[in-house]
């Protein structure tokens, strides 16, 4: 088939403390499955899913990282190419919420500046064990001006919405596309029309 199967390719990255459910979120989204095994991710892994948004076929390449500290040197090298980052914490685990600051610092350090961020409070089905209220999550999201959702990979709450929202935000941020052929590189006519000036 000569025709491309998608119009746009978005690279997304899942980060967060160990055991908050990054892999589970990804599996729910890509395979609509939930697995109760308790196994750490090794290094980095990825899944692909194509979605349709605003009449465009968007291929999401989602990178799932290991939360283990030791893998950080590997995982941080994937930050740069990411267009969207999902930062996950566990609402039943106060520590994972406190460490958000560290993860945000990591993003600032390693990711490109215009990356779209999103905060996810996972495991929101476990109401009886909740220690981080939704308000606290919302507040920190507002403070850092990032999107926020509470999710549950187990009960399939907000998982699809999270990925669609993030993809939409990236799409909105892109320079306006007049054609579906946006992936190809075109000479930038607009910029040459700009008034001359600035430093160098």
């Amino acid at each position: 088939m000569a025709k491309k199967q998608y119009d746009l390719l978005f690279k997304l990255l899942l980060i967060g403390d160990s055991g908050v459910g990054k892999t589970c979120i990804l599996y729910r989204f890509s395979d609509d499955a939930f697995n109760t095994t308790f196994i750490s991710t090794i290094g980095i892994d990825f899944k692909i899913k194509t979605i349709e948004l605003k009449g465009k076929k968007i291929k999401l390449q989602i990178w799932d990282t290991a939360g283990q500290e030791r893998f950080h040197t590997i995982t941080t090298s994937y930050y740069r190419g990411a267009m969207g980052i999902m930062l996950v914490y566990d609402i039943t685990n106060a520590r994972s919420f406190e460490n958000i600051a560290k993860w945000l610092r990591n993003i600032d350090e390693h990711a490109s500046e215009d990356v779209v961020k999103m905060l996810l409070g996972n495991k929101c089905d476990m109401t009886d064990r909740r220690v981080i209220s939704k308000e606290r999550g919302e507040k920190i999201a507002i403070d850092h001006q990032i999107r926020f959702l509470e999710t549950s990979a187990k009960s399939n709450i907000n998982i699809d919405k999270a990925f669609y929202d993030l993809a939409e935000a990236i799409l909105d941020k892109m320079p306006s596309q007049s054609s579906t052929n946006s992936m190809s590189i075109r000479p930038v006519e607009q910029e040459s029309n700009k008034p001359q000036g600035g430093c160098c």
Binding site: G19, F38, Q68, E69, R95, E98
Partner: peptide, 11 residues
């Protein structure tokens, strides 16, 4: 649960 797997508090 998750001893050695879970991250500790960075601070």
């Amino acid at each position: 649960v998750g001893i050695y797997r879970m991250s500790g508090s960075e601070e």
